[in-house]
Design a protein around this nucleic acid. Structure first.
Length: 577
RNA sequence: CAGGCCGUGGCUCAGCCUGGCAGAGCGCCUGGCUUGGGACCAGGAGGUCGCAGGUUCGAAUCCUGCCGGCCUGACCA
Protein backbone atom coordinates (compact mmCIF):
# COMPACT_ATOMS: atom_id res chain seq x y z
CA UNK A 1 0.00 0.00 0.00
CA UNK A 2 1.33 3.40 -0.97
CA UNK A 3 1.32 5.95 1.81
CA UNK A 4 0.09 8.52 -0.70
CA UNK A 5 -2.91 6.32 -1.50
CA UNK A 6 -4.04 5.63 2.04
CA UNK A 7 -4.85 7.86 4.99
CA UNK A 8 -2.44 7.93 7.88
CA UNK A 9 -2.73 11.31 9.60
CA UNK A 10 0.23 11.26 11.99
CA UNK A 11 0.62 13.89 14.68
CA UNK A 12 3.89 15.35 15.86
CA UNK A 13 2.56 16.28 19.29
CA UNK A 14 0.60 14.43 21.93
CA UNK A 15 -3.12 15.13 21.71
CA UNK A 16 -4.38 17.35 24.48
CA UNK A 17 -7.04 14.99 25.81
CA UNK A 18 -5.08 11.75 25.91
CA UNK A 19 -3.40 10.62 29.08
CA UNK A 20 -2.15 7.04 28.71
CA UNK A 21 0.62 5.94 26.30
CA UNK A 22 -1.55 3.65 24.19
CA UNK A 23 -4.15 6.35 23.66
CA UNK A 24 -1.57 8.99 22.73
CA UNK A 25 0.17 6.64 20.33
CA UNK A 26 -3.01 5.38 18.71
CA UNK A 27 -4.02 8.95 17.95
CA UNK A 28 -0.55 10.15 16.94
CA UNK A 29 0.05 7.16 14.67
CA UNK A 30 -3.22 7.81 12.87
CA UNK A 31 -4.92 4.64 14.09
CA UNK A 32 -7.96 6.23 15.69
CA UNK A 33 -9.71 9.55 16.17
CA UNK A 34 -12.08 10.44 18.96
CA UNK A 35 -15.59 11.39 18.00
CA UNK A 36 -16.95 12.08 21.49
CA UNK A 37 -16.29 10.87 25.02
CA UNK A 38 -15.82 7.12 24.81
CA UNK A 39 -16.44 6.75 21.09
CA UNK A 40 -13.71 6.32 18.52
CA UNK A 41 -13.38 6.05 14.78
CA UNK A 42 -10.88 3.51 13.49
CA UNK A 43 -8.92 4.94 10.57
CA UNK A 44 -7.54 2.56 7.91
CA UNK A 45 -4.35 1.63 9.75
CA UNK A 46 -6.09 1.18 13.10
CA UNK A 47 -8.78 -0.92 11.52
CA UNK A 48 -6.18 -3.29 10.13
CA UNK A 49 -4.79 -3.83 13.63
CA UNK A 50 -8.28 -4.30 15.05
CA UNK A 51 -9.15 -6.79 12.32
CA UNK A 52 -5.96 -8.70 13.08
CA UNK A 53 -6.98 -9.01 16.72
CA UNK A 54 -10.45 -10.05 15.64
CA UNK A 55 -9.05 -12.65 13.28
CA UNK A 56 -6.94 -14.25 16.01
CA UNK A 57 -9.98 -14.43 18.27
CA UNK A 58 -12.16 -15.91 15.54
CA UNK A 59 -9.60 -18.51 14.51
CA UNK A 60 -9.09 -19.74 18.05
CA UNK A 61 -12.79 -19.77 18.87
CA UNK A 62 -13.49 -21.77 15.73
CA UNK A 63 -10.63 -24.10 16.53
CA UNK A 64 -12.11 -24.66 19.99
CA UNK A 65 -15.38 -25.71 18.38
CA UNK A 66 -17.41 -22.59 19.10
CA UNK A 67 -19.98 -21.53 16.50
CA UNK A 68 -20.03 -17.95 15.28
CA UNK A 69 -23.34 -16.16 14.98
CA UNK A 70 -24.48 -12.55 15.01
CA UNK A 71 -27.16 -11.24 17.34
CA UNK A 72 -28.81 -7.83 17.18
CA UNK A 73 -27.46 -4.82 19.00
CA UNK A 74 -31.03 -3.66 19.31
CA UNK A 75 -32.94 -5.64 21.91
CA UNK A 76 -36.36 -5.40 23.53
CA UNK A 77 -36.25 -4.25 27.14
CA UNK A 78 -38.80 -6.94 27.99
CA UNK A 79 -36.11 -9.62 27.72
CA UNK A 80 -34.06 -7.76 30.30
CA UNK A 81 -37.02 -7.36 32.57
CA UNK A 82 -37.58 -11.09 32.31
CA UNK A 83 -34.06 -11.89 33.52
CA UNK A 84 -34.33 -9.25 36.20
CA UNK A 85 -31.30 -7.36 34.94
CA UNK A 86 -33.11 -4.36 33.49
CA UNK A 87 -32.92 -2.58 36.82
CA UNK A 88 -29.65 -4.21 37.78
CA UNK A 89 -27.82 -2.71 34.84
CA UNK A 90 -29.65 0.55 35.34
CA UNK A 91 -28.06 3.60 33.78
CA UNK A 92 -25.19 1.56 32.39
CA UNK A 93 -27.55 0.50 29.64
CA UNK A 94 -28.22 2.70 26.62
CA UNK A 95 -31.97 2.71 26.10
CA UNK A 96 -34.57 4.48 24.05
CA UNK A 97 -38.27 4.36 23.35
CA UNK A 98 -39.23 3.65 19.74
CA UNK A 99 -42.12 5.22 17.81
CA UNK A 100 -44.48 2.52 19.03
CA UNK A 101 -43.68 3.29 22.63
CA UNK A 102 -41.60 0.16 23.18
CA UNK A 103 -38.47 0.46 25.27
CA UNK A 104 -35.37 -0.86 23.52
CA UNK A 105 -31.83 -1.28 24.73
CA UNK A 106 -28.51 -1.34 22.92
CA UNK A 107 -26.99 -4.58 24.14
CA UNK A 108 -24.27 -4.26 26.75
CA UNK A 109 -23.95 -8.07 26.60
CA UNK A 110 -26.09 -10.87 25.20
CA UNK A 111 -26.94 -13.49 27.84
CA UNK A 112 -30.62 -12.68 27.55
CA UNK A 113 -30.75 -12.82 23.76
CA UNK A 114 -28.75 -16.00 23.40
CA UNK A 115 -30.74 -17.70 26.16
CA UNK A 116 -33.94 -16.65 24.46
CA UNK A 117 -32.91 -18.30 21.20
CA UNK A 118 -31.60 -21.42 22.86
CA UNK A 119 -34.75 -21.98 24.89
CA UNK A 120 -36.88 -21.75 21.76
CA UNK A 121 -34.77 -24.04 19.61
CA UNK A 122 -32.64 -26.32 21.77
CA UNK A 123 -34.95 -28.59 23.68
CA UNK A 124 -33.20 -31.95 23.62
CA UNK A 125 -30.00 -33.26 25.18
CA UNK A 126 -29.21 -34.50 21.66
CA UNK A 127 -28.64 -30.89 20.58
CA UNK A 128 -26.18 -30.23 23.38
CA UNK A 129 -23.54 -29.24 24.19
CA UNK A 130 -23.12 -26.11 22.13
CA UNK A 131 -20.91 -23.05 22.43
CA UNK A 132 -22.03 -19.96 20.52
CA UNK A 133 -20.14 -16.74 20.05
CA UNK A 134 -20.18 -13.47 18.19
CA UNK A 135 -17.86 -10.54 17.61
CA UNK A 136 -19.93 -7.46 17.82
CA UNK A 137 -20.24 -3.89 18.99
CA UNK A 138 -21.46 -3.45 22.55
CA UNK A 139 -22.81 -0.35 24.22
CA UNK A 140 -22.35 0.68 27.82
CA UNK A 141 -23.08 4.16 29.09
CA UNK A 142 -20.04 4.08 31.35
CA UNK A 143 -19.98 6.25 34.45
CA UNK A 144 -16.70 7.53 33.22
CA UNK A 145 -15.15 6.53 29.92
CA UNK A 146 -11.35 6.84 30.00
CA UNK A 147 -8.03 5.64 28.72
CA UNK A 148 -9.07 5.81 25.09
CA UNK A 149 -10.47 2.56 23.78
CA UNK A 150 -9.71 0.78 27.06
CA UNK A 151 -12.89 2.03 28.70
CA UNK A 152 -15.21 3.34 26.03
CA UNK A 153 -18.96 3.52 25.66
CA UNK A 154 -18.98 1.64 22.39
CA UNK A 155 -16.58 -1.24 21.94
CA UNK A 156 -15.96 -4.45 20.07
CA UNK A 157 -16.46 -7.54 22.14
CA UNK A 158 -16.27 -11.24 21.53
CA UNK A 159 -18.94 -12.79 23.69
CA UNK A 160 -19.44 -16.52 23.89
CA UNK A 161 -21.94 -18.73 25.68
CA UNK A 162 -21.81 -22.45 26.34
CA UNK A 163 -24.77 -24.70 27.09
CA UNK A 164 -24.29 -28.13 28.60
CA UNK A 165 -26.39 -30.94 30.01
CA UNK A 166 -24.24 -31.33 33.12
CA UNK A 167 -21.66 -29.64 35.32
CA UNK A 168 -19.05 -32.05 33.99
CA UNK A 169 -19.97 -30.90 30.53
CA UNK A 170 -19.65 -27.27 31.58
CA UNK A 171 -16.20 -27.98 32.99
CA UNK A 172 -15.15 -29.34 29.62
CA UNK A 173 -16.64 -26.45 27.65
CA UNK A 174 -15.09 -24.01 30.10
CA UNK A 175 -11.66 -25.58 29.81
CA UNK A 176 -11.85 -25.41 26.02
CA UNK A 177 -12.49 -21.67 26.21
CA UNK A 178 -9.84 -21.21 28.89
CA UNK A 179 -7.28 -22.88 26.65
CA UNK A 180 -8.41 -20.89 23.62
CA UNK A 181 -8.03 -17.66 25.60
CA UNK A 182 -4.46 -18.52 26.48
CA UNK A 183 -3.67 -19.11 22.84
CA UNK A 184 -5.39 -15.89 21.79
CA UNK A 185 -3.51 -13.63 24.18
CA UNK A 186 -0.23 -15.39 23.51
CA UNK A 187 -0.66 -14.96 19.78
CA UNK A 188 -1.53 -11.31 20.31
CA UNK A 189 1.82 -10.91 22.04
CA UNK A 190 0.39 -9.69 25.34
CA UNK A 191 2.08 -9.93 28.69
CA UNK A 192 -0.82 -11.41 30.57
CA UNK A 193 -1.72 -13.48 33.56
CA UNK A 194 -4.82 -15.34 34.60
CA UNK A 195 -6.35 -14.61 37.97
CA UNK A 196 -9.18 -16.05 39.99
CA UNK A 197 -12.07 -13.63 40.18
CA UNK A 198 -14.90 -13.39 42.63
CA UNK A 199 -18.05 -14.95 41.26
CA UNK A 200 -20.29 -13.10 43.63
CA UNK A 201 -22.98 -14.64 45.76
CA UNK A 202 -25.03 -15.45 42.72
CA UNK A 203 -24.33 -18.09 40.13
CA UNK A 204 -21.44 -20.40 39.65
CA UNK A 205 -18.32 -21.19 41.54
CA UNK A 206 -15.56 -20.34 39.12
CA UNK A 207 -14.52 -17.22 37.28
CA UNK A 208 -11.24 -16.20 35.74
CA UNK A 209 -10.00 -12.87 34.51
CA UNK A 210 -7.37 -12.62 31.81
CA UNK A 211 -5.28 -9.60 32.62
CA UNK A 212 -2.84 -7.81 30.35
CA UNK A 213 -0.19 -6.52 32.73
CA UNK A 214 0.10 -2.75 32.46
CA UNK A 215 0.93 0.08 34.83
CA UNK A 216 -2.13 2.03 33.79
CA UNK A 217 -4.49 -0.91 34.25
CA UNK A 218 -7.59 -0.14 36.28
CA UNK A 219 -7.72 -3.55 37.91
CA UNK A 220 -5.51 -4.54 40.79
CA UNK A 221 -4.34 -8.11 40.91
CA UNK A 222 -2.38 -10.10 43.40
CA UNK A 223 0.27 -12.56 42.30
CA UNK A 224 2.61 -14.99 43.99
CA UNK A 225 6.23 -14.82 42.90
CA UNK A 226 6.69 -18.54 43.44
CA UNK A 227 3.73 -20.73 42.58
CA UNK A 228 1.90 -18.60 40.05
CA UNK A 229 -1.15 -18.07 42.25
CA UNK A 230 -3.07 -15.06 41.00
CA UNK A 231 -6.35 -13.47 41.98
CA UNK A 232 -7.99 -10.13 41.60
CA UNK A 233 -7.99 -7.79 44.53
CA UNK A 234 -11.52 -8.63 45.68
CA UNK A 235 -10.84 -12.34 45.71
CA UNK A 236 -7.20 -12.65 46.74
CA UNK A 237 -6.49 -14.54 49.93
CA UNK A 238 -3.32 -13.99 51.89
CA UNK A 239 -1.49 -14.85 55.06
CA UNK A 240 -0.04 -12.19 57.30
CA UNK A 241 3.66 -12.74 57.87
CA UNK A 242 3.94 -13.48 61.59
CA UNK A 243 7.34 -11.98 62.12
CA UNK A 244 6.17 -8.46 61.47
CA UNK A 245 4.32 -8.55 64.78
CA UNK A 246 7.29 -9.98 66.62
CA UNK A 247 9.45 -7.11 65.48
CA UNK A 248 7.19 -4.30 66.53
CA UNK A 249 5.69 -5.73 69.67
CA UNK A 250 6.93 -5.45 73.16
CA UNK A 251 7.60 -8.88 74.56
CA UNK A 252 5.37 -8.49 77.59
CA UNK A 253 1.88 -7.18 78.21
CA UNK A 254 1.71 -3.62 79.42
CA UNK A 255 -1.22 -2.16 81.41
CA UNK A 256 -4.08 -0.62 79.46
CA UNK A 257 -4.00 3.15 79.35
CA UNK A 258 -6.17 5.98 78.08
CA UNK A 259 -4.59 8.81 76.08
CA UNK A 260 -6.04 12.07 74.83
CA UNK A 261 -6.05 12.42 71.05
CA UNK A 262 -7.91 15.65 70.28
CA UNK A 263 -9.42 15.62 66.78
CA UNK A 264 -7.13 12.80 65.72
CA UNK A 265 -9.34 10.29 63.93
CA UNK A 266 -7.62 8.59 61.01
CA UNK A 267 -5.18 5.74 61.38
CA UNK A 268 -2.35 7.73 59.86
CA UNK A 269 -3.02 10.71 62.08
CA UNK A 270 -3.21 8.62 65.26
CA UNK A 271 -0.02 6.77 64.33
CA UNK A 272 1.79 10.02 63.71
CA UNK A 273 0.39 11.61 66.86
CA UNK A 274 1.55 8.71 69.02
CA UNK A 275 4.77 8.17 67.10
CA UNK A 276 4.08 4.53 66.23
CA UNK A 277 3.71 2.63 62.95
CA UNK A 278 0.11 2.27 61.62
CA UNK A 279 0.23 -1.51 62.00
CA UNK A 280 0.19 -1.08 65.78
CA UNK A 281 -3.37 0.18 65.50
CA UNK A 282 -6.54 -1.83 65.28
CA UNK A 283 -9.16 -0.33 63.02
CA UNK A 284 -12.67 -0.81 64.31
CA UNK A 285 -15.21 -0.46 61.52
CA UNK A 286 -18.88 -0.42 62.32
CA UNK A 287 -20.88 -2.04 59.52
CA UNK A 288 -24.57 -2.57 59.16
CA UNK A 289 -25.19 -6.14 58.11
CA UNK A 290 -28.82 -6.72 57.20
CA UNK A 291 -29.61 -3.77 59.44
CA UNK A 292 -27.67 -5.09 62.44
CA UNK A 293 -24.54 -3.27 63.60
CA UNK A 294 -21.36 -5.37 63.56
CA UNK A 295 -17.80 -4.40 64.42
CA UNK A 296 -15.12 -5.46 61.96
CA UNK A 297 -11.57 -5.32 63.27
CA UNK A 298 -8.58 -5.08 60.96
CA UNK A 299 -4.97 -4.09 61.50
CA UNK A 300 -4.25 -0.39 61.09
CA UNK A 301 -2.38 -0.74 57.81
CA UNK A 302 -4.91 -3.18 56.35
CA UNK A 303 -8.14 -2.54 54.52
CA UNK A 304 -11.40 -4.34 55.04
CA UNK A 305 -12.57 -6.11 51.87
CA UNK A 306 -16.32 -5.69 51.32
CA UNK A 307 -16.46 -8.72 49.03
CA UNK A 308 -15.01 -10.96 51.71
CA UNK A 309 -17.36 -9.44 54.28
CA UNK A 310 -20.26 -10.23 51.99
CA UNK A 311 -19.11 -13.83 51.74
CA UNK A 312 -18.52 -14.09 55.48
CA UNK A 313 -21.96 -12.83 56.38
CA UNK A 314 -23.68 -14.45 53.41
CA UNK A 315 -25.40 -11.29 52.26
CA UNK A 316 -24.85 -8.30 50.01
CA UNK A 317 -26.72 -6.06 52.44
CA UNK A 318 -23.56 -4.63 53.92
CA UNK A 319 -22.67 -0.99 54.34
CA UNK A 320 -20.56 1.12 56.63
CA UNK A 321 -22.71 2.56 59.41
CA UNK A 322 -23.42 6.27 59.43
CA UNK A 323 -22.14 8.62 62.12
CA UNK A 324 -25.38 8.55 64.10
CA UNK A 325 -25.42 4.76 64.27
CA UNK A 326 -21.76 4.69 65.31
CA UNK A 327 -22.40 7.09 68.17
CA UNK A 328 -25.42 5.12 69.29
CA UNK A 329 -23.64 1.76 69.17
CA UNK A 330 -20.25 2.76 70.58
CA UNK A 331 -21.23 5.68 72.74
CA UNK A 332 -18.42 7.68 71.18
CA UNK A 333 -17.81 9.82 68.14
CA UNK A 334 -16.94 8.50 64.68
CA UNK A 335 -13.21 7.95 64.41
CA UNK A 336 -12.78 6.87 68.01
CA UNK A 337 -14.36 3.42 67.91
CA UNK A 338 -12.66 0.47 69.59
CA UNK A 339 -13.45 -3.09 70.66
CA UNK A 340 -12.96 -2.59 74.40
CA UNK A 341 -16.36 -2.54 76.11
CA UNK A 342 -18.16 -2.73 72.77
CA UNK A 343 -21.35 -4.74 73.17
CA UNK A 344 -22.12 -5.65 69.56
CA UNK A 345 -20.88 -8.66 67.58
CA UNK A 346 -17.18 -8.36 66.78
CA UNK A 347 -15.23 -10.25 64.15
CA UNK A 348 -11.55 -9.80 63.50
CA UNK A 349 -9.20 -10.40 60.63
CA UNK A 350 -6.72 -13.24 61.02
CA UNK A 351 -3.88 -10.77 61.22
CA UNK A 352 -5.05 -9.72 64.68
CA UNK A 353 -4.74 -13.21 66.19
CA UNK A 354 -1.45 -12.33 67.80
CA UNK A 355 -2.12 -8.66 68.39
CA UNK A 356 -0.51 -7.39 71.56
CA UNK A 357 -0.20 -3.95 73.13
CA UNK A 358 -2.01 -2.24 70.29
CA UNK A 359 -3.86 1.03 69.95
CA UNK A 360 -7.62 1.37 69.51
CA UNK A 361 -10.29 3.99 69.82
CA UNK A 362 -11.76 4.40 73.33
CA UNK A 363 -15.39 4.82 72.21
CA UNK A 364 -15.05 8.31 73.64
CA UNK A 365 -14.45 11.52 71.74
CA UNK A 366 -10.80 12.61 71.43
CA UNK A 367 -9.57 9.52 73.24
CA UNK A 368 -7.67 6.38 72.29
CA UNK A 369 -6.51 3.38 74.30
CA UNK A 370 -2.94 2.13 74.20
CA UNK A 371 -1.59 -1.28 75.21
CA UNK A 372 -4.84 -2.99 74.32
CA UNK A 373 -4.66 -6.78 74.37
CA UNK A 374 -6.94 -9.43 72.98
CA UNK A 375 -8.57 -11.69 75.60
CA UNK A 376 -7.33 -9.52 78.48
CA UNK A 377 -9.17 -6.35 77.39
CA UNK A 378 -11.71 -7.61 74.86
CA UNK A 379 -12.85 -10.70 73.05
CA UNK A 380 -14.08 -11.31 69.54
CA UNK A 381 -16.80 -13.56 68.17
CA UNK A 382 -14.55 -15.03 65.53
CA UNK A 383 -11.65 -14.63 63.13
CA UNK A 384 -11.84 -14.67 59.36
CA UNK A 385 -10.04 -13.48 56.23
CA UNK A 386 -11.63 -10.06 55.93
CA UNK A 387 -9.04 -7.82 54.36
CA UNK A 388 -7.47 -6.99 51.01
CA UNK A 389 -4.18 -8.71 50.33
CA UNK A 390 -1.19 -6.42 50.10
CA UNK A 391 2.36 -6.50 48.80
CA UNK A 392 4.58 -8.50 51.14
CA UNK A 393 1.85 -10.86 52.35
CA UNK A 394 2.52 -14.57 52.22
CA UNK A 395 0.93 -16.65 49.49
CA UNK A 396 -2.08 -18.71 50.64
CA UNK A 397 -0.92 -21.68 48.57
CA UNK A 398 2.82 -21.78 49.15
CA UNK A 399 5.75 -20.11 50.89
CA UNK A 400 6.04 -17.38 48.27
CA UNK A 401 5.41 -13.67 48.68
CA UNK A 402 2.49 -11.79 47.15
CA UNK A 403 2.78 -8.58 45.21
CA UNK A 404 0.21 -6.27 43.66
CA UNK A 405 0.22 -5.33 40.02
CA UNK A 406 -2.11 -3.52 37.69
CA UNK A 407 -3.82 -5.09 34.74
CA UNK A 408 -6.19 -4.41 31.89
CA UNK A 409 -8.98 -6.95 31.84
CA UNK A 410 -8.89 -8.32 28.30
CA UNK A 411 -10.89 -11.46 28.91
CA UNK A 412 -13.27 -12.90 31.47
CA UNK A 413 -14.65 -16.41 31.72
CA UNK A 414 -17.43 -17.42 34.03
CA UNK A 415 -19.25 -20.57 35.00
CA UNK A 416 -22.76 -19.20 35.11
CA UNK A 417 -24.58 -22.40 35.99
CA UNK A 418 -28.34 -22.19 35.69
CA UNK A 419 -28.93 -18.55 36.59
CA UNK A 420 -30.27 -17.59 33.17
CA UNK A 421 -31.43 -20.97 31.93
CA UNK A 422 -33.50 -21.45 35.08
CA UNK A 423 -34.75 -17.89 35.21
CA UNK A 424 -35.61 -17.70 31.53
CA UNK A 425 -36.71 -21.29 31.02
CA UNK A 426 -33.92 -22.59 28.80
CA UNK A 427 -34.56 -26.26 29.52
CA UNK A 428 -34.01 -29.50 27.68
CA UNK A 429 -35.31 -33.03 27.95
CA UNK A 430 -32.71 -35.62 28.96
CA UNK A 431 -32.66 -39.23 27.84
CA UNK A 432 -35.09 -40.14 30.61
CA UNK A 433 -37.54 -37.52 29.45
CA UNK A 434 -36.83 -35.22 32.42
CA UNK A 435 -36.76 -31.45 32.03
CA UNK A 436 -33.53 -29.75 33.13
CA UNK A 437 -32.10 -26.25 32.77
CA UNK A 438 -28.93 -26.01 30.66
CA UNK A 439 -25.69 -25.46 32.53
CA UNK A 440 -24.24 -22.27 31.11
CA UNK A 441 -20.88 -20.61 30.84
CA UNK A 442 -20.08 -17.19 29.41
CA UNK A 443 -16.86 -15.89 27.95
CA UNK A 444 -15.94 -12.34 26.97
CA UNK A 445 -12.99 -10.70 25.24
CA UNK A 446 -12.47 -6.98 24.70
CA UNK A 447 -11.12 -6.89 21.16
CA UNK A 448 -10.24 -3.18 21.21
CA UNK A 449 -8.50 -3.73 24.51
CA UNK A 450 -6.23 -6.34 22.93
CA UNK A 451 -4.93 -3.65 20.58
CA UNK A 452 -4.56 -0.99 23.27
CA UNK A 453 -2.99 -3.43 25.75
CA UNK A 454 -0.52 -4.59 23.11
CA UNK A 455 0.62 -1.00 22.62
CA UNK A 456 0.66 -0.43 26.37
CA UNK A 457 2.90 -3.51 26.65
CA UNK A 458 5.12 -2.63 23.73
CA UNK A 459 6.21 0.91 22.92
CA UNK A 460 9.17 3.20 23.39
CA UNK A 461 9.70 6.96 23.34
CA UNK A 462 9.49 7.04 19.55
CA UNK A 463 6.33 5.03 19.05
CA UNK A 464 4.72 1.64 18.86
CA UNK A 465 6.45 -1.74 18.57
CA UNK A 466 3.70 -3.94 17.18
CA UNK A 467 3.44 -7.55 18.17
CA UNK A 468 3.80 -9.23 14.76
CA UNK A 469 0.33 -10.75 14.75
CA UNK A 470 -1.32 -7.36 15.24
CA UNK A 471 0.91 -5.19 13.04
CA UNK A 472 -1.13 -3.44 10.33
CA UNK A 473 1.63 -4.37 7.87
CA UNK A 474 4.71 -6.49 8.48
CA UNK A 475 7.04 -4.32 6.40
CA UNK A 476 7.53 -0.57 6.04
CA UNK A 477 9.46 0.51 2.95
CA UNK A 478 10.88 4.02 3.08
CA UNK A 479 12.02 5.36 -0.27
CA UNK A 480 14.35 8.22 0.49
CA UNK A 481 13.87 10.08 -2.75
CA UNK A 482 10.94 8.56 -4.63
CA UNK A 483 11.06 11.28 -7.30
CA UNK A 484 14.31 9.72 -8.46
CA UNK A 485 13.19 7.36 -11.21
CA UNK A 486 15.83 4.77 -10.32
CA UNK A 487 14.75 4.71 -6.69
CA UNK A 488 11.08 4.49 -7.63
CA UNK A 489 11.74 1.64 -10.03
CA UNK A 490 13.88 -0.30 -7.53
CA UNK A 491 11.26 0.28 -4.83
CA UNK A 492 8.51 -1.10 -7.01
CA UNK A 493 10.60 -4.14 -7.88
CA UNK A 494 11.25 -4.78 -4.20
CA UNK A 495 7.56 -4.43 -3.37
CA UNK A 496 6.68 -6.92 -6.09
CA UNK A 497 9.16 -9.43 -4.69
CA UNK A 498 7.78 -8.99 -1.18
CA UNK A 499 4.21 -9.37 -2.43
CA UNK A 500 5.16 -12.54 -4.28
CA UNK A 501 6.43 -13.90 -0.97
CA UNK A 502 3.14 -12.98 0.71
CA UNK A 503 4.52 -9.94 2.52
CA UNK A 504 2.38 -6.86 2.30
CA UNK A 505 4.32 -3.65 2.78
CA UNK A 506 3.44 -0.08 3.53
CA UNK A 507 5.41 2.01 1.04
CA UNK A 508 6.25 5.52 2.12
CA UNK A 509 6.36 7.11 -1.32
CA UNK A 510 5.85 10.67 -0.07
CA UNK A 511 8.03 13.44 -1.42
CA UNK A 512 9.22 14.41 2.05
CA UNK A 513 12.42 14.75 4.04
CA UNK A 514 13.92 11.41 5.00
CA UNK A 515 13.88 12.43 8.64
CA UNK A 516 10.14 12.96 8.55
CA UNK A 517 9.63 9.49 7.15
CA UNK A 518 11.91 7.84 9.69
CA UNK A 519 10.10 9.54 12.55
CA UNK A 520 6.77 8.37 11.19
CA UNK A 521 8.12 4.86 10.67
CA UNK A 522 9.20 4.69 14.31
CA UNK A 523 5.83 6.06 15.39
CA UNK A 524 3.87 3.52 13.34
CA UNK A 525 6.11 0.76 14.64
CA UNK A 526 5.77 -1.82 11.87
CA UNK A 527 8.09 -4.79 12.58
CA UNK A 528 10.64 -4.39 9.77
CA UNK A 529 11.71 -1.18 8.07
CA UNK A 530 13.43 -1.16 4.70
CA UNK A 531 15.13 1.98 3.47
CA UNK A 532 16.00 2.50 -0.15
CA UNK A 533 17.81 5.57 -1.48
CA UNK A 534 20.03 6.61 -4.36
CA UNK A 535 23.21 5.22 -2.87
CA UNK A 536 21.53 1.87 -2.11
CA UNK A 537 20.31 1.61 -5.69
CA UNK A 538 23.87 2.24 -6.89
CA UNK A 539 25.29 -0.41 -4.58
CA UNK A 540 22.45 -2.87 -5.13
CA UNK A 541 21.55 -2.90 -1.46
CA UNK A 542 18.66 -1.96 0.78
CA UNK A 543 18.88 -1.11 4.48
CA UNK A 544 16.95 -3.32 6.89
CA UNK A 545 16.03 -2.31 10.44
CA UNK A 546 13.79 -4.31 12.76
CA UNK A 547 11.76 -1.95 14.96
CA UNK A 548 13.21 -3.50 18.11
CA UNK A 549 16.84 -3.10 17.01
CA UNK A 550 18.81 0.14 17.34
CA UNK A 551 20.71 -0.12 14.07
CA UNK A 552 20.05 -0.98 10.48
CA UNK A 553 22.17 -3.10 8.20
CA UNK A 554 22.59 -3.24 4.43
CA UNK A 555 21.40 -6.36 2.65
CA UNK A 556 21.72 -7.19 -1.04
CA UNK A 557 18.58 -6.42 -3.00
CA UNK A 558 18.56 -9.99 -4.29
CA UNK A 559 18.53 -11.35 -0.75
CA UNK A 560 16.05 -8.80 0.59
CA UNK A 561 12.97 -11.03 0.79
CA UNK A 562 14.84 -13.80 2.57
CA UNK A 563 16.43 -11.32 4.97
CA UNK A 564 13.07 -9.74 5.73
CA UNK A 565 11.59 -13.16 6.52
CA UNK A 566 14.50 -13.93 8.79
CA UNK A 567 14.20 -10.59 10.53
CA UNK A 568 10.44 -11.08 11.00
CA UNK A 569 11.04 -14.48 12.56
CA UNK A 570 13.58 -13.01 14.96
CA UNK A 571 11.24 -10.15 15.76
CA UNK A 572 8.40 -12.58 16.45
CA UNK A 573 10.63 -14.62 18.73
CA UNK A 574 11.07 -11.56 20.93
CA UNK A 575 7.32 -11.55 21.54
CA UNK A 576 6.95 -15.26 22.25
CA UNK A 577 6.11 -16.01 25.84
C1' C B 1 -23.52 11.86 40.19
C1' A B 2 -20.01 15.20 43.33
C1' G B 3 -15.51 18.19 43.25
C1' G B 4 -11.60 20.56 40.25
C1' C B 5 -9.70 22.25 35.56
C1' C B 6 -10.34 23.46 30.33
C1' G B 7 -13.06 25.13 25.50
C1' U B 8 -9.06 30.67 20.72
C1' G B 9 -7.39 28.18 12.65
C1' G B 10 -6.44 20.93 11.20
C1' C B 11 -2.84 20.01 15.84
C1' U B 12 -0.22 22.08 20.32
C1' C B 13 -0.86 26.49 22.72
C1' A B 14 -0.18 32.23 23.97
C1' G B 15 -3.51 36.38 24.64
C1' C B 16 -8.01 36.86 29.49
C1' C B 17 -5.62 38.98 35.54
C1' U B 18 -5.63 45.06 34.05
C1' G B 19 -11.81 45.28 28.03
C1' G B 20 -9.50 48.78 22.62
C1' C B 21 -7.41 45.91 14.84
C1' A B 22 -7.40 37.86 16.82
C1' G B 23 -1.67 35.82 17.50
C1' A B 24 2.70 32.00 17.50
C1' G B 25 4.81 27.18 16.31
C1' C B 26 3.61 22.92 13.65
C1' G B 27 0.45 21.28 9.65
C1' C B 28 -1.93 22.82 4.77
C1' C B 29 -1.60 25.39 -0.53
C1' U B 30 1.87 27.79 -4.58
C1' G B 31 6.88 28.48 -6.28
C1' G B 32 12.06 27.75 -5.35
C1' C B 33 15.95 25.05 -3.16
C1' U B 34 16.65 20.44 -0.85
C1' U B 35 16.21 14.93 0.23
C1' G B 36 19.97 8.85 4.84
C1' G B 37 16.71 11.16 11.33
C1' G B 38 10.97 16.08 12.09
C1' A B 39 15.66 21.57 6.71
C1' C B 40 15.61 26.43 4.35
C1' C B 41 13.67 30.92 1.36
C1' A B 42 9.44 33.64 -0.68
C1' G B 43 4.28 34.08 -1.10
C1' G B 44 -0.72 32.35 0.50
C1' A B 45 -5.36 30.11 2.46
C1' G B 46 -7.65 29.18 6.96
C1' G B 47 -10.84 31.44 13.17
C1' U B 48 -19.20 33.13 14.30
C1' C B 49 -12.47 33.03 20.17
C1' G B 50 -18.02 26.34 22.54
C1' C B 51 -23.45 28.46 22.65
C1' A B 52 -26.97 32.05 24.60
C1' G B 53 -27.89 36.22 27.40
C1' G B 54 -26.02 40.42 30.31
C1' U B 55 -22.58 44.73 31.67
C1' U B 56 -20.05 48.42 28.45
C1' C B 57 -19.16 53.52 23.60
C1' G B 58 -16.55 48.86 22.83
C1' A B 59 -16.12 41.82 25.18
C1' A B 60 -11.79 36.22 23.30
C1' U B 61 -11.05 39.15 27.92
C1' C B 62 -15.87 40.97 33.07
C1' C B 63 -20.90 38.59 34.92
C1' U B 64 -24.93 34.68 34.51
C1' G B 65 -26.87 30.31 32.41
C1' C B 66 -26.27 26.24 29.22
C1' C B 67 -23.41 22.71 26.18
C1' G B 68 -18.97 19.93 25.36
C1' G B 69 -14.29 17.88 27.10
C1' C B 70 -10.48 16.32 30.67
C1' C B 71 -8.90 14.94 35.67
C1' U B 72 -10.10 13.08 40.69
C1' G B 73 -13.59 10.51 43.57
C1' A B 74 -17.90 7.57 44.23
C1' C B 75 -18.10 1.92 50.88
C1' C B 76 -10.43 3.91 51.46
C1' A B 77 -12.14 4.71 57.71
Amino acid sequence: MRWSHTWIPTLREDPQDADVPSQKLMIRAGLIRKLAAGTFTYLPLGLRALRNAERIVREEMDRAGALEMLMPVLQPADLWKESGRFDGFGDLMCKFTDRNGHVNVLGPTHEEVVTHHVRSEITSYRQLPVTLYQIQTKFRDEIRPRFGVIRSREFLMKDGYSFDVSWEGLNKSYQAMYDAYQRIFSRAGLKFCIVEADSGLMGGDVSHEFMALAEIGEDVLVRCDKCGYGANREKAESRTPEKRWDIVHAPTFVPLQEVETPNVTTVDAVAKFLGIPPLRLVKTLIYKVKGEPVAVLVRGDHEANPTKLAHHFGTTEIALADAATIEKVTGGAMGFSGPVGLKIKKIADHALTSATNCVTGANKKDTHLINVNLDRDFTVDGFADLRFAMTGDSCPKCEGTLSLSHGIEVGHTFKLGTKYSEGMGAKFLNEKGELHPSIMGCYGIGVNRIVAAAIENSHDKDGILWPPALAPYPVHLVSVNPKDAKVAEASQRLLDQLAAAGLEALWDDRDAQAGVKFKDADLLGLPVRLTLGGRGVEAGTVDLKPRNQPAQRAVRMDDAVGEVKKALAEYAAAFAR
